[in-house]
Write a protein that binds this DNA or RNA. Structure first.
Lengths: 111, 111
DNA sequence: CGGCATCCGATATGATACTG
DNA sequence: CAGTATCATATCGGATGCCG
């Protein structure tokens, strides 16, 4: 954005600006997820972008990253309290999207 | 996006993806606004982007465009019922942003 | 006043190959 | 498995000038 926030709304939107962030939020909202797991849950996302988004969201304190030093590398990502509260704030928007999905698909006609 | 919606949330986010769309939503939520008025309300936006966003939002049936054929050109933009319902769905997110503005500014440090 | 056309740079996203 | 590095592309946003 690179501009002072005019209201809380664009500050909030700034946190979910990435192409896949709300989906990541959704994927992690009820359980921790591993890197490869998230990749499978978001078909089409590249490893690079997944890494970038997770790093940004961690920097934003929305997600927690926990690395386990075992024989097989394992990293788990989960929502922080802050991230959970963001997810809660997004629920009405999600409900709105679900409710009007048909209409949205009509005007947008995504693949 | 060019990808089928996985849940209502990313469908909704798809509608507010533009850099200034939530601000436009906010600017119009309580009264119709003229083109030049919106430009003044969103310092920094270019005419081109303003035009593009308004056209997209009109195509998305979020805003209504009304052109008056008078001696002086006049066009008014206002939220449709659909746009108003979207604005309502965004309120918790706006409240979240307002509530955590300090923290967001901390991790993001915008201009 | 309310646009549209064009060009340009910045940023976001993606494909592929390689590594600890 | 969980990344990193590099290269390429796409989309977004901005500046400028012109028009009814």
């Amino acid at each position: 954005m690179s501009r002072p926030y005019v209201c809380g709304l664009d500050a909030a939107v700034d946190m979910i600006g990435g192409k896949w962030k709300v989906l990541l939020l959704w994927a992690m909202h009820d359980q921790p997820r591993r890197f490869g797991e998230l990749r499978r849950l978001l078909p089409g996302i590249s490893e690079k972008v997944l890494t970038q988004h997770l790093r940004e969201m961690a920097a934003d304190q929305i997600v927690r990253r926990e690395a386990f030093d075992e024989t097989v590398p394992r990293v788990e990502y989960s929502l922080s309290e802050f991230g959970l509260s963001l997810h809660e704030a997004l629920r009405p928007l999600g409900a709105w999207g679900t409710q009007h999905m048909d209409r949205i698909a009509e005007v947008r006609a995504p693949a």
